[in-house]
Design a protein around this nucleic acid. Structure first.
Lengths: 196, 196
DNA sequence: ATACGAACTTAACACTGTTAAGTAATTATT
DNA sequence: AATAATTACTTAACAGTGTTAAGTTCGTAT
């Protein structure tokens, strides 16, 4: 019988890795630091995760699920698409700004490190985009939004929101620009584009 | 007298680092690899650059200048703002997609690594944003674009373009979405927002 | 009591950024 | 011509990294 339950240690590794990631960022995340924090040797992590990339992939997966729950938690998601679109933008950006280091691995981890991220996990991640698409389609049905490829429009919306989060968490936006003003303007851009 | 001219070796270090960065990306960039490529020991690099971050900072600076030359090279930049804005978007995105690894350090290097990036270099980098602002202001003067804070609008435009480049080079955009279509849609969004 | 399996550990490897001490070539001084 | 100082490198060393291989300990099955 196991000294510990496999799923308990695996869960502890994941929770600890997430905490260290949020606290110190990806570049300061190391197997030895995770191991020290959980009180085991670094090599024990390899019993549960093939390598460091796979460990991070598991967290990306959980982050995508968390984000999806956040987005789907909006009231009247498909019955008030105009308001819902704004709220989707709010929640997406808030998630990114509140968890910058986590957001970074979710959306900016280098492709080389995503090489073995399973296709079915990409599919799951893409469901977040589909929430945007569904709201756009609902608005189109109600003639609140202009016609057009909803998935393409949702992707264009996403690029703007991602750009906003990415530049704010990389601290590249000029100090003269108030982040709230920029956020409002980007949201205006997005809503005008969709045609609300 | 020096075995080599200081500026010659320094230039060689920069050129080689840029080449390796573009070829292998930031995460595979190491002082030892650079040293092997130039035929000196790794520690000789420290005679010209305080540390790895400073070396990369010098390249970021050069990249910002190169981008500025690209953007300022547009014909009728301030006399045909509507066309110029589109061309600015084209050139910005093309730059990013053609030099993804370089773009990553220019705009996505973690804030911790940018901690000692000189203020005057940030100021230089921001001139690229000012090119967008100046075009928007020119359009506003000609009543081609809507009124409003041109710097804020330029920043909003930049976030969309950055989002597009960032997601494409991170290979996060759904395969079902044609990058050219997405680019067109984002450009539409941007131009509509500015009011062309 | 013994064998086997599971879940860890330690040992080892090749790599990393960086600092300190050492070396060789060039220049300046006597 | 000999010596000292300076410059521009080198090697040695350090503490860290991800990962693999071999070893150890504990619990279970026979």
């Amino acid at each position: 019988m196991a000294r510990t339950s496999g799923t308990n240690l695996r869960r502890e590794i994941l929770d600890t890795t997430r905490r260290l990631l949020i606290q110190d960022g990806y570049q300061n995340l190391s197997m030895r630091k995770i191991a020290n924090a959980i009180g085991y040797s670094a090599t024990s992590i390899y019993l549960y995760f093939e390598n460091k990339d796979n460990l991070v992939h598991a967290l990306i997966d959980e982050g995508m699920e968390k984000m999806q729950q956040l987005l789907l938690g909006i009231d009247n998601l498909l019955t008030d698409p105009l308001k819902a679109l704004r709220e989707l933008c709010n929640r997406y950006v808030a998630f990114g700004l509140e968890n910058p280091e986590y957001y970074e691995v979710m959306f900016q981890l280098h492709p080389a490190r995503m090489a073995r991220y399973p296709v079915e996990k990409y599919r799951k991640a893409r469901k977040n985009l589909e929430v945007f698409r569904d709201v756009i389609e609902a608005g189109q049905r109600m003639s609140l939004f202009r016609e057009g490829d909803a998935l393409l429009k949702a992707t264009a919306v996403w690029t703007s929101l991602h750009g906003l989060v990415s530049l704010l968490i990389a601290q590249r936006v000029d100090q003269q620009i108030a982040p709230e003003d920029l956020q409002e303007r980007v949201f205006d851009q997005v809503v005008a584009f969709v045609g609300g």
